[in-house]
Design a protein around this nucleic acid. Structure first.
Lengths: 345, 345
DNA sequence: CTGAAAGCGCTTACAG
DNA sequence: CTGAAAGCGCTTACAG
């Protein structure tokens, strides 16, 4: 005999009463509850999740899908460990556990997600690194699984998402550079179909237009979102004629490789070339000169993400109902020295 | 009606036969199997994990516990995304899924693990960042959960672990520096109770002894295992009298902050100070001068970890039985320029 | 080769 | 306030 039966037998009461006591039901005498709680603690009894889930039709687990094959994640500077902290702060309050579901590199993300959803391992889901066209969204909608997409997409439509304010960053960066006299401003863009690439490029274009600057497609430098990608991007940058006087990066780690490649060419960021990075990362502050970049609280973003997800879960909808909306997450400028370079035109 | 019943009804056969067909049992006619597989594919049917787990007494899920509060992990250069790839390569072959279990910062890791184990969310477990005294190990032994510890510990005893070859690195680094004439060699050590700190310091000490060099406790610089920790460590280093001519880092990201702090003091690694880093990281190669460090394949380590774990799981023990042993994982020297500095004594 | 039935460990109406 | 019983969705002896 094991599990709840064993505990019930030891206490000489029924398993129903044990269950009720453990689950905080009101219809249990204080004395019985005390005995049950005490015995459970003593024996380290915790309800078997499978039995519980099967009966309740819910797992009390929220999944965060991670695609480690996506370089944007593989290299991201602990984006997820920041995020999970915030998520858990909120989820824990409701006895929900967070698990991370890493999609194997050699498995199709859609198939992986399909499998996870069908198995009912989790009650709700967060997906990230949304693609321009992302069938995962259609799948989750069809499966009626509560979910929030971290990142916009052209897929889906009525689903809920939270995304970083790429437009705000693009406009802020372009404004800053234009104010310093720059007119040939390059940007990097991911060479994948990740949606943020489109958003960023479009916003950059709009910002240029606002300043009456012509859009030159050759100034969009496609490169992997990694340190090496930054190195590659700098190499490309150096071949452009006439050479741009400024560059905006879309991804935090690129600055590291870019600085290196520029140094090799004898070009000093902030002196000979204006550089604006993307998200502020622990590494950023050790770049010389300090990188101008944008700050966001991953913990707060994680909390918001959790609250938004809860708003979509029937059981918690009333508490978090007002969070069930799309949201653009702001980033705050952190001025550095890397864009000090003034262009005399 | 849902799940297997729905599928069985549609096919006009019993749920038992559907289950047998889906699970690849031999006692199903080829024609029936074909029909079942086809219908399952069409309807996207996948067995509910809770029902399955409850009946089988196994979840087919392996957990990897992550403590994001541990700075050694929080800052580690995507250590885990490398590892999970290797783990999944092996686990997928046996239809086991890997989930990552991030312990919330504000929860006691032991309590968290206890809860996860009691709930029977996973069949087996990998724990990492083992402490000198690590009650998680005793817990897992007592619970009879198959597990592998990534890292040694004084806890437990008969349990299975895999650990990096910190001794090998310490000896190799000291040998290299001594050969270049260095006699005052500092090392960094974590300021937590993580076991690798003890192993590393002991090996460093033994290596010094081997060369007839005196051990000076003031040359052990305690600092957080992060970029900032490297900065702090360099600050401490600069205050030591007489100043050490070489330093060995225990953690890959420290080099970044250390380089910065040394630069501020006008000290060039490889020229005025010999520096040897620990694990080779994507960032390392963008350090100037190139950091001498040690390489390991996280993917291979992940695979070995998975094979070792499988050896401990009753169902797979016969296939992987010979993997059920402790293992020191080797690292390979990657010579850079950061320790070129010769000390004329 | 297939079906009917038991039972994995829980939670929750229902009856008392 | 408590107990007895049903049933969540599966898998697997068992019988035929």
């Amino acid at each position: 005999m094991k599990g709840i039966h064993q505990l019930a037998k030891h206490l000489e009461i029924s398993i129903g009463t044990v269950s009720r006591a453990l689950n905080g039901r009101p219809d249990v005498s204080p004395e019985t509850r005390r005995r049950v709680l005490e015995a459970a603690e003593q024996f380290g009894y915790v309800a078997n999740q499978s039995g519980r889930s099967l009966r309740k039709g819910a797992t009390n687990v929220v999944g965060l899908m991670i695609e480690s094959s996506k370089e944007s994640i593989d290299n991201s500077d602990n984006f997820f460990s920041g995020l999970t902290g915030g998520l858990q702060t909120v989820l824990t309050r409701h006895n929900l556990d967070l698990i991370m579901l890493p999609c194997p590199n050699d498995e199709d993300p859609l198939e992986y997600l399909k499998r996870m959803v069908a198995r009912r391992l989790v009650d709700a889901m967060i997906i990230s690194a949304t693609q321009r066209v992302d069938p995962r969204i259609d799948l989750l909608i069809k499966a009626h699984i509560p979910f929030v997409a971290l990142g916009r997409s052209t897929s889906g439509g009525s689903h809920i998402w939270i995304d970083l304010d790429f437009e705000g960053v693009a406009h802020s960066a372009v404004d800053r550079l234009v104010a310093r006299g720059h007119r040939r401003i390059a940007i990097t863009a991911p060479n994948s179909d990740i949606n943020l690439g489109y958003v960023f490029v479009d916003a950059y274009r709009a910002a240029l237009e606002r300043h009456g600057l012509a859009f030159d497609p050759s100034l969009i430098i496609r490169a992997p979102s990694s340190e090496s990608g930054g190195y590659q991007a700098a190499s490309t940058l150096l071949t452009l004629e006439p050479r741009p006087s400024a560059i905006i990066l879309i991804y935090e780690m690129m600055a590291i490789g870019l600085y290196q490649r520029l140094a090799e060419a004898g070009i000093i960021p902030g002196k000979d070339m204006a550089v604006i990075g993307f998200r502020e990362a622990p590494r950023s502050k050790f770049l010389q000169p300090a990188l101008t970049c944008y700050r966001l609280s991953l913990h707060d973003l994680g909390m918001e993400l959790a609250e938004t997800l809860l708003a979509l879960m029937p059981e918690h909808a009333q508490t978090y109902g007002d969070h069930a909306r799309n949201r653009i997450w702001p980033l705050e400028l952190v001025p550095g020295k890397s864009d000090d370079f003034q262009q005399s035109s």
